[in-house]
C-alpha cells in the first residue's frame, strides 16, 4: 500500500506492506538513523518524532503515520550544520557506540521544545525509554542540560536582534 508522510520536511510517498512497521518503512527508505535494538518498544533506539511526539517506531504500524509529519535525526542536523543537541552530546562525551544516540536526541528535542529549562530529573524522565549500555547515562543527561542552555542562549540572542 502507499504511505504518504512528510519526512524531515519532505513530502514522500513510500510503498509499504500493510503490516509493515514504521521502523522498517523508514530504514528501507534510507533513514538508517532509526536503529533496531529490540522490536518491543523497550530500548528507544528506533525513536521517531511523529507530529513532534517521540514514539518507538518498532511498535508503530507504518500505516499509523499516514499524513503525519515525521522527524528523524537526519532531519535535525548534519555534521556540517549540527543541531545543538548533537554538539552537546559530542562535547559531553555522551556518544560511545552511538547506537542509542539518535533516539535520545529526538526525545531530548521533544523535551526541550516543551520545556526549554529542564532539571536533571526532567531529563531523566524524558529519556527513561532509551536504553544505553555504554555510558551509564551520566554524560547524556549533562549533554541535554548543556544543549538546553545553548538553545536558550541562542533564543536570547535571536530575541535581542529583533
Amino acid at each position: 500500500m502507499k504511505l504518504t508522510a512528510t519526512i524531515n520536511g519532505v513530502r514522500r510517498t513510500l510503498e509499504v506492506a500493510p503490516r509493515a512497521l514504521l521502523i522498517d518503512a523508514l530504514r528501507d527508505a534510507g533513514y538508517t538513523s532509526v536503529k533496531r535494538g529490540c522490536e518491543t518498544g523497550d530500548c528507544g533506539a528506533c525513536t521517531v518524532l511523529v507530529d513532534g511526539v517521540p514514539l518507538a517506531s518498532c511498535v508503530v504500524f507504518a500505516g499509523q503515520v499516514e499524513g503525519r509529519v515525521l522527524t528523524t535525526v537526519e532531519g535535525l542536523g548534519t555534521p556540517d550544520r549540527p543541531h545543538p543537541l548533537m554538539e552537546a552530546m559530542v562535547d559531553a562525551g555522551a556518544v560511545q557506540c552511538g547506537f542509542c544516540t539518535p533516539g535520545m536526541i529526538l526525545s531530548a528535542k521533544a523535551l526541550l521544545d516543551e520545556n526549554p529549562d529542564p532539571t536533571a530529573a526532567d531529563v531523566k524522565d524524558a529519556l527513561d525509554g532509551h536504553l544505553c549500555r555504554c555510558t551509564g547515562y551520566v554524560k547524556q543527561i549533562e549533554a541535554v542540560l548543556d544543549a538546553a542552555a545553548r538553545l536558550r542562549t541562542r533564543a536570547a540572542a535571536g530575541g535581542g536582534a529583533r
Partner: peptide, 9 residues
Amino acid sequence: CGSRLLQNQ
C-alpha cells in the same frame, strides 16, 4: 504506564 516513549502511545 511504561516509559515516556510508550506513554506517548
